[in-house]
Design a protein around this nucleic acid. Structure first.
Length: 331
DNA sequence: TGCTAGTACTCAG
DNA sequence: GTACTAGCA
């Protein structure tokens, strides 16, 4: 779910750009977004055409590779504007995210069961609603996409775990100039240039740059990020709730922002909240916070230069990493 | 005022 | 994954 409410909060530094502005650059592409949209779109269209047969196959997109056309169309669009795409695919599930994953899988299975039941009763329009809710990108679909990428000589990499961390690494070591995604998490991973909402009709895209964070103003009830370090920004995001750690109940982005301004460090902040007793800080929160922070900092990624697994950012020598932590961030 | 949880959406000749 | 918003403390 990314960081809820982060993009609206950064509205004032969002810049609309044309793809031609990126001519000559290499941009990492979050493959999952394009595949999911492709699958969803075509599942949606078929269901509205009344193609209910083989509903399971429909939901998983097995019988077609139309979704690849959608993704490849966008790959070609980038190339048309002389942008070199560097497609990044998700790898295995990260232990830190296992809870979210199983929850989602379960919901999809429930929706599929509901859809099948409704379809059996002849209630097709109601069934459609639930079929659409169980579309998912399978590894088989990703493989179909990879085959198309190979055919057209497009650079790609499969991340050992999450594409987010992999893309952040590619940008950090200078293999790409920016990242195309729909996920606000990339900003928390410390990316410098993140591009959202690619519109293939107008060839436009919304850009958010790390260097502009200082221009985020406190006007109109917003927050000011002037002077905020990457570390502080990351703390705010994690405190507000992220994929690796739910928030302290009642704490969103703005509350996290003002709490951090007041207490400076997360340790002091948590201590203060527990003393006040107004918000229920879960037991072991601080430890869980440290783990979540490590996932954003040191998640395992693949280095195409060294051809081996490395940490997104180097783990400081004094930072002892026990086996449990290692398992959490990927090994 | 800000957080939560719900709904609607993802295509495109 | 996102955006939007009614309802709540």
């Amino acid at each position: 779910m990314g960081i809820s409410g982060l993009l609206p909060l950064l509205k004032s530094i969002q810049v609309n750009k044309h793809l031609s502005d990126f001519e000559g650059q290499t941009l990492a592409v979050d493959a999952y977004v394009w595949l999911h949209r492709g699958v969803y779109a075509y599942a949606y269209v078929w269901l509205h055409r009344g193609v209910y047969a083989c509903a399971t196959d429909l939901a998983t997109g097995k019988k077609t590779t139309k979704y690849v056309d959608y993704a490849m169309h966008r790959v070609r669009l980038l190339r048309h504007h002389k942008i070199q795409p560097y497609v990044v695919l998700d790898g295995g599930p990260l232990p830190a995210k296992k809870g979210t994953e199983t929850e989602r899988r379960q919901r999809r299975a429930e929706n599929l069961a509901k859809a099948n039941a409704l379809a059996a009763q002849g209630k097709h329009s109601q069934a459609r609603e639930f079929y659409v809710k169980c579309v998912d990108v399978t590894p088989q679909m990703a493989y179909q996409f990879i085959k198309a990428l190979r055919t057209e000589g497009v650079q790609y990499v499969v991340a050992p775990y999450e594409a987010d961390a992999q893309m952040a690494y590619l940008e950090r070591i200078g293999l790409v100039d920016g990242i195309i995604t729909e996920d606000s998490d990339l900003l928390v991973f410390g990316c410098r240039k993140v591009l959202f909402k690619l519109d293939s009709v107008s060839s436009t895209i919304t850009s958010i740059s790390r260097v502009d964070f200082g221009s985020v103003t406190a006007a109109e009830g917003g927050i000011s990020l002037l002077g905020w370090t990457d570390s502080q920004f990351r703390a705010m995001a994690i405190l507000s709730g992220c994929d690796y750690l739910p928030s302290i109940p009642g704490v969103g982005l703005k509350t996290a922002w003002s709490l951090l301004r007041k207490h400076r460090t997360v340790e002091q902040l948590v201590r203060a909240l527990r003393l006040e007793g107004k918000k229920p800080v879960p037991k072991g929160y601080l430890e869980a916070y440290r783990l979540a922070e490590k996932v954003f900092l040191h998640q395992r990624v693949y280095c195409p230069l060294e051809e081996k697994l490395v940490s997104l950012t180097e783990v400081p020598a004094q930072d002892v990493m026990d086996a449990e932590t290692e398992a959490y961030i990927g090994r």
